[in-house]
């Protein structure tokens, strides 16, 4: 069973986000770049499926050279090979553009399952997976917390998180699933894994290599245009609730919530 994992590199979740002078981008100096946390679950699930069914795990990323590090991390976890599309014309792509690039990479590969993180924790779109599935003409199941593959490897049953419950969905393969936290506990790369990863194949391609027209990707091909970035509204400093004892504080708080905030 061959799995493909789509991987994004994002700022670590502990990062303070500062908006650049141009008001259109974030300051990227001193950012610690990591594999998108949801993509870690996707990599881990692919590795577990390979352990059970055999086959290969291919990791595909789009972005500048630094993304190589995150692909190497996936290879160190155990993935077999990586593909990076590194092309300045891809910069500024929206979800549609990124999905077009991924589809162009993946369409000629032999695969049964594509795994993506449920969203990038930077732009928070969560759209690339479903656009990619549509472009490839395969079914999608998103926000998956449990995945079972039938013994014959022909169908999957996925549990997806919905408001107030879990939906169990069955799909034939090939299919695309997006990973939610809880799907598994991703492994750490071992030292031998890190050494081995250095020798694993990592192809770097350009948009032209994929037979894509540069006008279809990047800023030119984007349907969504960013007008500006802004910081969140500052919350006004609140008040500390007085009281000598916990009971007094609780009584004062209850009163404030009822009479001033009117929320209980």
């Amino acid at each position: 069973m061959n799995c493909i994992v789509c991987l994004k590199q994002v700022p670590d979740t502990e990062t303070q986000i500062k908006i650049a002078q141009d008001g259109m981008s974030v300051v990227t100096d001193n950012i610690k770049w990591v594999m998108n946390p949801y993509d870690e679950y996707a990599v881990e699930e692919a590795l577990r499926l390979r352990e059970k069914f055999g086959g290969e795990v291919t990791v595909v990323g789009v972005g500048p050279k630094r993304v190589t590090e995150s692909i190497r991390t996936a290879l160190a976890m155990g993935a077999d090979k990586g593909i990076l599309v590194d092309d300045p014309s891809a910069a500024g792509s929206d979800s549609l553009g990124i999905a077009r690039i991924l589809a162009a990479v993946i369409k000629d590969l032999d695969y049964q399952l594509i795994l993506c993180g449920k969203q990038g924790v930077d732009d928070d779109y969560g759209v690339v997976g479903s656009v990619l599935a549509e472009l490839l003409g395969i079914p999608q199941i998103s926000v998956v917390v449990k995945l079972e593959v039938s013994e014959d490897g022909a169908t999957i049953k996925a549990h997806r998180e919905v408001e107030g419950g879990t939906l169990v969905i069955e799909s034939p393969l090939p299919a695309l699933v997006t990973a939610q936290k809880g799907l598994n506990e991703p492994r750490y790369a071992s030292l031998p894994g890190i050494m081995k990863a250095k020798k694993k194949p990592l192809d770097v391609k350009t948009v032209a290599d994929l037979g894509l027209d540069a006008a279809q990707v990047g800023e030119g091909g984007a349907k969504i245009k960013v007008l500006k970035l802004s910081p969140p509204a500052e919350r006004e400093a609140g008040k500390m609730v007085d009281g000598e004892t916990p009971e007094e504080k609780a009584a004062n708080l209850a009163k404030l919530l009822r009479e001033e905030a009117k929320v209980i």
Partner: peptide, 11 residues
């Protein structure tokens, strides 16, 4: 974006 650490206005 970034779970609310910033906002993007888009068209």
């Amino acid at each position: 974006i970034y779970a609310g650490k910033a906002y993007a206005t888009v068209t």
